[in-house]
């Protein structure tokens, strides 16, 4: 028949569009996801039961071991007054994450309610909510949080509230946009067409679909809120120094950077790993939700 077949070209890459979160192959993608879930689990253990994974006292200062480099007894070294960095990271997890989680819960609750309201209520209500939201969104987030702290005082609780409030406008926008999109969807029209009542359509079809992105934005938002919380603590506006918290640990280590890099590097690494893990897990959820549409 014809001459021997020649390979014309071979383009690398998956035949279908990249489905992964970071664009790696399916197997790498899965390994990374499992690693992230594992890390998040580890942080959860740190936060809930810190003494399980460390035997030292986060406040115990060993004057003979000031800024000691990583060793067997102090795997991540000691800080400027001789406290174990690893132990302080473990004990600091709770207060660091609490800031982020608290802030997300505040933004999420208020943002979802306002977003649904703006998407479903009569036009004038929607107008009021959205113009108010525009005003909130006009402030850069971190600066709004700082302003709120300036007015009402610092500390971990106020910091979480401040970040939570500053984050609301974004949630409102996302939920409202989603609600409007779903309202116009054909399947909502079809549901009315079947003869379902307005309430049934709202409760059974509209609201659940409009709220689907909530998990995603909350997971993705957790990273940002935690970063902001640690940032406030770094500035001395969140959790105050003797208590272990990653942001304030970094702030302390700032003056001794040339003498002991470990005191600054490891708390920051923990924070980065946490934020990256939530982002990857969040995007994974996002992809799987999109896939079901």
């Amino acid at each position: 028949m014809s001459a021997a077949t020649t390979l014309i070209g071979e383009t690398r890459g998956p035949a279908r569009r990249r489905t992964g979160v970071i664009g790696a192959g399916a197997i790498t993608e899965r390994i990374i996801l499992v690693a992230c879930l594992g890390l998040l689990g580890l942080f959860a253990v740190f936060a809930l039961w810190p003494s399980l994974l460390t035997w030292q006292d986060p406040f115990a200062a060993d004057r003979s071991l000031i800024l000691a480099p990583p060793s067997l007894t102090h795997p991540l070294g000691t800080d400027e007054i001789g406290r174990d960095v690893y132990t302080r990271i473990v004990y600091g997890t709770r207060s660091t994450l609490a800031l982020g989680v608290g802030a997300v819960l505040i933004s999420l609750t208020l943002g979802t309610v306002a977003g649904l309201l703006a998407g479903l209520a009569p036009r004038w209500v929607s107008m009021i909510v959205m113009r108010g939201n525009d005003i909130g969104a006009a402030f850069p987030e971190l600066l709004l949080a700082i302003l709120i702290i300036a007015l009402f005082g610092g500390g971990p609780v106020n910091a979480a509230i401040a970040i939570g409030i500053a984050g609301i406008p974004y949630y409102v926008r996302v939920i409202r946009a989603e609600t409007l999109k779903i309202r116009r969807a054909t399947f909502i029209e079809a549901a009315h067409g079947l003869g379902l009542s307005r309430t049934t359509v709202l409760v059974r079809h509209l609201a659940p679909n409009a709220l689907r992105p909530v998990v995603v934005i909350a997971t993705l938002g957790l990273g940002g809120a935690t970063l902001a919380g640690a940032g406030l603590s770094f500035l001395g506006l969140g959790t105050a120094p003797p208590a272990p918290e990653w942001g304030s640990m970094l702030s302390n280590a700032r003056s001794f950077l040339g003498l002991g890099w470990w005191a600054a590097v490891f708390p920051g690494l923990a924070l980065t790993l946490f934020v990256a893990s939530t982002t990857i897990v969040g995007r994974r959820i996002q992809k799987s939700l999109e896939g079901r549409r």
Binding site: M1, A4, T5, T6, I8, G13
Partner: peptide, 25 residues
Amino acid sequence: LGLHGPGARVEAGRLDVAGQDARRY
């Protein structure tokens, strides 16, 4: 046209465009 999408493996016994062998283009 040599515009096969990503992830494609293309082979041919002959692909002459205007008399030119275009297989290894």
